[in-house]
Design a protein around this nucleic acid. Sequence first.
DNA 1: TTTAGTAGGAAAATCGTTTTTTGTATTATG
DNA 2: CATAATACAAAAAACGATTTTCCTACTAAA
Lengths: 339, 339
Amino acid sequence: MSAGEQKKRDVSIKDIADMASVSVATVSRVINQNGRYSVETEARVRRIMKEYDYKPNLVARGLRMKKVDTIGVIIPDITNEFFSKIALELQMGLFKQGFAAMICNTNEDGFIENQYIQMLNAQQVSGVIYISGNYDEKREQLNIPTVYIDRRPKDKQTKSKTVIIESNNMQGGYLATRCLCDSNAKRIACISLDSRVSTHEERVNGCKKALKEVGLFFTEQDFVTVQKNTMTEGYQALQRLLLNDQEIDGIFCTSDILAAGALKYLEEAEIEIPSQMRLVGYDDTTLSQSTKLPITTIRQPIAEMGKLAVENILAMVSHEKIEKKEYILPVVLVKRCTT
Amino acid sequence: MSAGEQKKRDVSIKDIADMASVSVATVSRVINQNGRYSVETEARVRRIMKEYDYKPNLVARGLRMKKVDTIGVIIPDITNEFFSKIALELQMGLFKQGFAAMICNTNEDGFIENQYIQMLNAQQVSGVIYISGNYDEKREQLNIPTVYIDRRPKDKQTKSKTVIIESNNMQGGYLATRCLCDSNAKRIACISLDSRVSTHEERVNGCKKALKEVGLFFTEQDFVTVQKNTMTEGYQALQRLLLNDQEIDGIFCTSDILAAGALKYLEEAEIEIPSQMRLVGYDDTTLSQSTKLPITTIRQPIAEMGKLAVENILAMVSHEKIEKKEYILPVVLVKRCTT
DNA sequence: TTTAGTAGGAAAATCGTTTTTTGTATTATG
DNA sequence: CATAATACAAAAAACGATTTTCCTACTAAA
């Protein structure tokens, strides 16, 4: 194709109408199965459509309908296994229902996130599924149906038509800590992520709750946060912890990546696991299974979360009235070799 | 909103035109900076646009232009770290140029892939970036600009306007094998993936080339393939290999996941690394860094591949004439503790 | 036979843009 | 002063669908 050459035109509804000797309105009614038409007309139109492999132009339909069968998916980091698995669930689920997913990776950047929202709005998407990230008041005003996963906008800011889907992070922290205690840890430390969202904080709260319940002493000094979710951070955080407090014999990391880093330090320091030290991570990633000593961890119900998100956003899109809903799904402990 | 209630209408170009007391044509010309208009008119129009936070309706524009500033990205498995990293590169790169990426996950399923292609076509996407997956002749006929990454459609089937971007898999296999030899391996085995695409096969070819070059004996028995890219498969494959041939003292796995599985077996069998056995993986994933003994591996230039893909697809979309191009990018050996 | 009702489908309006065509001042040129 | 050229911008046509309105036969009831 030389510059300026047009793309070969697809066959349009008008072409079909002409070939079937009916009006475009009739073809449209056959496609959408509303209005009235005779069985003969329908047969003829369908035959022609099949013959010419006609596919309605979704852009034209979108313009007329003022919305498009696309759902925006806002994700902070698609290379994170947890998020990519959720994205996969969403995409497959939406696709099965005839919707496209437009996956937008914000890199945890509020500015990029805003731009994406603008774009999704300009694209006339029918809804947005919002996974973690930053809260933006302006976004709310766009008035697009929204489902939140894995994060909780502050209460007073949520509108009536909001659906929140999260797993029970408090319970996760609790289960992890009880497991540490059950394998005889007496002094428990915690490495978590310093994040704008409440997720990791809740896990820490669950941890403290368990400690209080079993009556185990703990000190705030042993509860640290790191800035980035990397193995190096986990490694270094544990190193510092053990320098200050040699009594520590159990560690809860609020992510598997941090736990893998911590485990690496333990291996290098030749600390025996699980006799001298116990370790629990979070998310049941491939990583937690790949280490020589597979890491005990917490598994979130990713498939269910995705399924619920798809169900709810589609219900909202089709104007089924949705009261404000919050799903808090249970997590499970996956016991491996570090406890 | 009750059922059937309309979404609040965005401000349209007509509204802007009315407020600025000009015609819609003039507003359009200001937006697209073509045609002629006075500086005063422009200033007025721009002021009103900003005041009302006007954003052009991309669907309407798409209908008129017969194409949309969206690029489809076909990916076999977004939860695979290599693919998700590429997807991330593509998405960020396209977004910076004002294009949206529509990421489609095929799960290696040809049927789903076909459906996605149909959808992308109906959505009027300007181009498609195609990562691995199945080859489909029908798709080619759609005549959308396409860039292939990491896979090579058969030569006679490619059209003139095709761009292929891949890394040098042959070189990767070669480097990996040379590294095994350099750390004194004498009998080398290879575990690779049985895939429809040539990628892994090429890596094996590189391996054999290196063996011939250094004059090392090898037998086809020691070159096995597995069906799925999982740690378990790697574990079992190595187990079988060592049962048949106790001489093996070096292993090349064509993916890090397989290598991690193999490493696990070696650890359990208490085989000394790297004195008794050497191991090289492929892709430089987080996994390869997380094991107690970090795995020597091959790194592909993901960022460059993504950048090239974006550059080329945008050039094709804007009708710059592109001759058939093939990029074969060099890979690097990342030496760690298993060699 | 007239009238009303209904089935089937055509015609036209609409969605929000871009682009071509047309029109009208104003300026330049002979 | 008449005419041509130019600058600016309005009007209208497209893009491909959906949906409302309207028209024409035909059938059924009075």
